[in-house]
Nucleic acid binder design. Sequence first.
DNA 1: GCGACTGATGTTAGCGCTAACATCCGCGTG
DNA 2: CACGCGGATGTTAGCGCTAACATCAGTCGC
Lengths: 350, 350
Amino acid sequence: MQPQAAAGRPLVMADVAARAGVSHQTVSRVVNGHRSVAPGTRARVERAIAELGYRPNIAARALVTGSTRTIGLVTVNISQYGPAQTMLGLEQAARAAGYALSVTILDDATAAAMREAVDRFVAQSVDAVVALSTYDDAAEALTAIDAPVPLVAVQVGGVEDRPAVGVDQETGARLATRHLLDLGHRTVHHVTGPADSQEARARIEGWRSELRAAGAPVPGLLAGDWTPSSGYAAGKQLAARVRGGDDVTAVFLANDQMALGLLAALHEEGLSVPEDVSVVGFDDLPEAPYFTPPLTTVRQDFAELGRRGVQLVLARLQGEDLHPDPVPPTLVVRGSSGPSRAGSARPERG
Amino acid sequence: MQPQAAAGRPLVMADVAARAGVSHQTVSRVVNGHRSVAPGTRARVERAIAELGYRPNIAARALVTGSTRTIGLVTVNISQYGPAQTMLGLEQAARAAGYALSVTILDDATAAAMREAVDRFVAQSVDAVVALSTYDDAAEALTAIDAPVPLVAVQVGGVEDRPAVGVDQETGARLATRHLLDLGHRTVHHVTGPADSQEARARIEGWRSELRAAGAPVPGLLAGDWTPSSGYAAGKQLAARVRGGDDVTAVFLANDQMALGLLAALHEEGLSVPEDVSVVGFDDLPEAPYFTPPLTTVRQDFAELGRRGVQLVLARLQGEDLHPDPVPPTLVVRGSSGPSRAGSARPERG
DNA sequence: GCGACTGATGTTAGCGCTAACATCCGCGTG
DNA sequence: CACGCGGATGTTAGCGCTAACATCAGTCGC
């Protein structure tokens, strides 16, 4: 696999040219798949390349072409399932398109950090930057940044003048809410994500409008922050209200991790899911089928999101102005949701 | 790719030089912090750089220096907590050291895929490659690869002639096993990771040697593959044995996700944790405290692992031959492990 | 007071590649 | 049969930067 032969200095095009008995330019033509090269010559050059194990020096190529064939990714929270999965899709699509992916993980989602990251990428001469963030200040910085390269946002809704691709959060939230309503629940409570997250707000919006459309009362929000711990707190709160006689029979949480926390709290408080309270999450973590009980949730296709992000980048690089549709989420029904006030058998794991 | 969109064509060193009234070489000296530049000149050049918004072209620099100040990371399974967290530490340490991080996510952990990834990085002229994989064939490929750049392994134990940094898996497994033994359990069952994972084997080793040291019987292994589903299957199996009268009171699983699956299975089978069976995992996922019941587990400091990985790379780049100590794991005791009910109401086979 | 030395700067020569132009050849056409 | 055309190839000129050497003061030592 070594790119240089046993010889001391690294191989360059001229070495291949000498071996194939052609000029270095012909080698360049072969390497770049240029058309006007005689088949015989091309074969000879290709053999020389293979025999020598030659690899073009991409720094030299980048210098003259002005393109590094690298996409910069700036993201937050890589240890969460969603971003990690999106990154996976992004990387694979980028690789398939012949681009390398350079990554910056933001310590915190501030505008300054976002700017600095994009800045560093520009200095690094990436061909384009993909930003994965759903927080307001970061998103704001994104609109403000005037980078000399295409800059696309993934998973950010509501950014007007910046190409973006995302999952339709609102539809997802409506799916979840509708599901609970259809099961006969009078209304559905909602545990939110952080207030400065656009996704969290879109989910609130979807939940609220579905309730309104069904003529159901719209209860007050329970504030969460994506963490299991905040779901746990919300669970304790709801349990107290149930015990106080409140009519709380269905909860929709803005993500699965919070749902896990809520499940733990309800369990501790002696409430059964779904008999006493039905619970629906959002994301469909790989662990969700193994929660106690298995979690009904809204699945987002994060990898697809990443793929579309790259698509968008490539389009921008061509100068096209693609406006991709949002990725549709789907509802996955498992054991944590059931009919209102009616014991039922647990559906099997998904 | 132009550094700044101030004028029509991209800025180059000569522009700064002209503005500062010096030669482009002096600008280069200032940019690279060379010492023999008169303070006045340096100030003038720096002002010109700031005013123009000049950024050096790193492709040109890379071409002449032969260094891209980029580290390549090849990893698997980024959607798992461990690798993701390790990557976080890696990225931050790399950034702090002035290196960019280019990422390849392996579709599958085969030797061929590993080779190809390293190969691509070499073609990309990265300064070093960090590999994050614990699977045999990938690890094997790693030893075999003769890259023209430093290649360090993170989280791979047992690779002899290749610089590596990892967590002390064996100690972690002993910690978990000892904990259960100390609680009075006669022995501890073990659900393994995949057989071709070095980490999984190290955990088996630790578990086995701790049992032996305590003079406890060593039960047969339950094969898992890191997934919740395999933990679930193991749980079903164990539950059947408990019902059959077997003396199964403590289980140590090679990761937390499998523990989640096992918890779900035991719950379904009407067994209580920790009353009937004590359960200990490995990793300490952020979700682990919210399992039902909260999971006792072994914590690994993945981010630290990443940081040490970069340390190792930098040392290699300097030509030093650092041999870092493994990162020590710690036991986190929560509700899923408790005292043995030796001589309990469960019927015993004669 | 003059050669050797030191520090600040300029000049020159590539790094390995691609783009543009130059060249050569064989062929069809009037 | 001269002409021109286009396909195949070679030649030349940079891309923007750094390394190495050249230059040119000043400064020091004896």
